[in-house]
Amino acid sequence: MAEQTLDLRHLPKPAAYDELAEQIDAVLAGVDDPIAAMATVSCLVHHAFGHLWTGFYRVVEPDRLLRVGPYQGTLGCLDIAFGRGVCGTAAAERRTVVVEDVNEFPGHITCDARSRSEIVVPVVDRSGTLVAVFDVDSEYPGAFDDDDRAGLERLLGWFAR
């Protein structure tokens, strides 16, 4: 299981996230490199659900600036200020932000015009320090819900272990 990416779109979301959590734990067993983990998580989540864009924006200046990190998909924005767009809002407020329609989100930053909905989850390390946000974009409106919030928050808990 650890050597392949899984397509989990045929499963109900809670079951898909359970299976993905097992795979991520298996693949990252013994890994203590957060960048390698970010690259792996981006890849596995992206392929499991077939998203438009899946990846991390790393904190490069605490409380000021995020910079694109490991991701899957088309080009991402390189830098995002805290408080700007969905990623900057999630970072500044340290809370998961689910956006059903990006055109309705004040200050949304368009990195790919095909994006229609988005979820962004803060990522903290063992000390509780914000190290990144995890951003997932879909070309479909309303693609993300509470199952995605709970599932992604659980997966990203790996960074706090």
Rank of each mutant, 00 (worst) to 15 (best):
E3A: 15
P12K: 14
K13D: 00
P14V: 15
A15W: 12
A16P: 02
A16H: 11
A16Y: 06
D18G: 13
D18I: 14
L20E: 11
A21P: 07
E22K: 15
Q23M: 12
I24F: 11
D25V: 15
D25A: 15
V31F: 09
V31N: 14
D32G: 12
D32N: 15
D32H: 14
A36R: 14
A37E: 07
M38P: 02
L44F: 13
V45D: 07
H47F: 15
H47N: 14
H47T: 12
H47I: 11
A48I: 11
G50R: 05
L52M: 12
W53R: 09
G55L: 02
G55P: 00
V59M: 04
R64Y: 02
L65D: 00
R67Q: 05
P70T: 00
Y71D: 00
Q72S: 10
Q72F: 09
T74I: 12
L75N: 08
C77D: 04
L78A: 05
I80R: 01
F82R: 03
G83K: 06
R84K: 10
R84I: 01
V86S: 05
V86C: 02
A92T: 01
E93V: 10
R94G: 04
R95G: 01
R95W: 08
V98A: 04
V99T: 03
V99K: 00
V99Q: 02
D101Y: 04
H108S: 01
T110Q: 10
T110L: 08
C111L: 03
A113Y: 11
A113D: 11
R116E: 01
V121P: 01
P122Q: 06
V123Q: 02
V123N: 02
V124H: 07
V124C: 04
R126L: 08
S127C: 07
G128D: 02
T129M: 13
A132F: 00
A132D: 00
F134T: 03
F134R: 02
S138E: 09
Y140T: 13
Y140P: 05
P141I: 14
G142Q: 08
D145R: 06
D145I: 11
D146E: 14
D148G: 11
R149D: 09
R149A: 09
R149T: 08
G151V: 13
L152E: 07
E153K: 15
E153S: 13
E153H: 12
W158S: 05
F159Y: 09
A160C: 01
R161G: 14
